[in-house]
């Protein structure tokens, strides 16, 4: 009886186990499940913080995108994330406050989804610490998607395509809460915008990217007198943290106080990035300001003087030309590549 075939098999088995045990990081990355999503950060951006349990892989991002555009995530299958976060509007919805399932109205204006990876807090009151945890909020909210998360998991497990996609993207047997939250967060992290005319002017040496009026507006925006960059400064035109920008003398929405119960934080809201601000109207947490003229006039007035109002909201006077220059500059924050990038669009 020839022993050769057995030896050949044994060698093969040994070989495979050697390969498996010597599997280093680079080998892992070459496996389809862990293939990194090819992401190029714009000039001037710091490294992207990514949590250890959610590496940006091509498969997670693709699955997250499918989920983002799927109304199956709402109780009556009518509302998807994209209902309130539309790409051509910088992932806002153009409404004062958003409308969810059964026509239910929320109480806040849908914020832009842009460069979220660098945010330290989510939601206008910062009640949610990670992008993964944020996913639980719209799904459960009665005025948004209104479905119990456990029931959503069961629903996706019965779907003809999702279980396979989850198995391919995660080292898990079925659709679960971990996979749903990780995939959506991965997709949201790639929503990077960094190529508006101001970026081109500041970081790419393209001096012609801003016209004369926009350049004058930029100098006003960056001036100490207007003080905008105290809050809307840095590479993302925002700082992490919460501020009261003097919108009201009395706030119906307590803002940060809602989660901290600290009265000194009443009327403080997350500082939004001003990227793509020309397409994200209406403005502020409640969508109460309808256009950028109203926003400029609000800041020029010096605010309503709430006790928690920031010391940087002091008011200023602009000539008609200056007012137009600032308005034009805010329009130069629109990144057409971002608004039209097919990588972010529904397939």
């Amino acid at each position: 009886m020839p022993a050769a075939p057995f030896i050949r098999q044994a060698m093969l088995a040994l070989g495979i186990s050697l390969i498996l045990s010597s599997c280093r990081q680079d080998d892992l990355l070459r496996m389809p499940m862990y293939e990194p999503y090819p992401l190029e950060l714009p000039p001037g951006f710091p490294d992207m913080p990514v949590p250890d349990d959610n590496p940006l892989t091509t498969r997670r991002v693709a699955l997250g995108k499918k989920l983002f555009y799927d109304p199956l995530l709402s109780i009556d299958s009518t509302v998807s994330c994209a209902t309130c976060h539309l790409q051509n509007l910088g992932f806002t919805d153009g409404n004062r406050v958003s409308e969810g399932v059964h026509g239910g109205l929320g109480f806040r204006n849908a914020p832009a989804l842009v460069n979220l990876a660098w945010n330290e807090d989510y939601m206008r009151d910062g009640g949610v610490p990670t992008l993964e945890l944020q996913v639980l909020a719209p799904v459960a909210a009665e005025v948004e998607m209104g479905i119990n998360f456990k029931e959503l998991v069961d629903r996706l497990n019965l779907d003809p395509t999702y279980p396979q996609l989850f198995r391919e993207a995660f080292d898990r047997d079925e659709v679960d809460a971990f996979g749903i939250t990780r995939a959506l967060a991965a997709f949201e992290r790639i929503l990077v915008s960094g190529n508006n005319p101001y970026d081109q002017y500041r970081f790419q040496g393209k001096t012609e990217a801003l016209n004369a009026s926009e350049q004058r507006g930029m100098l006003l925006f960056e001036s100490n007198e207007l003080g905008c960059t105290h809050c809307h400064g840095g590479f993302d035109l925002r700082k992490n943290g919460f501020e009261n920008n003097g919108l009201y003398a009395q706030y119906v929405d307590s803002g940060r106080t809602r989660v901290t119960l600290n009265p000194d934080e009443r009327g403080k809201f997350k500082v939004p990035s001003l990227r793509n601000v020309a397409v994200t109207a209406p403005y502020m947490h409640d969508g109460s300001l309808t256009d950028l003229w109203q926003v400029i006039d609000h800041y020029a007035s010096g605010g309503k003087g709430h006790p928690n109002q920031s010391e940087f909201i002091t008011g200023f006077t602009l000539t008609t030309t200056e007012r137009t220059d600032l308005y034009n500059f805010l329009h130069a924050l629109t990144d057409q590549d971002f608004l039209q990038n097919p990588a972010f669009s529904e397939e």
Partner: peptide
């Protein structure tokens, strides 16, 4: 979402978690 489905801390129906 990081807990096993069998854990009381995993998403429950009706929900026992304030997502906001």
């Amino acid at each position: 979402s990081t807990y096993e489905t069998s854990s009381a801390l995993s998403p429950q129906s009706p929900s026992m978690h304030w997502s906001w």
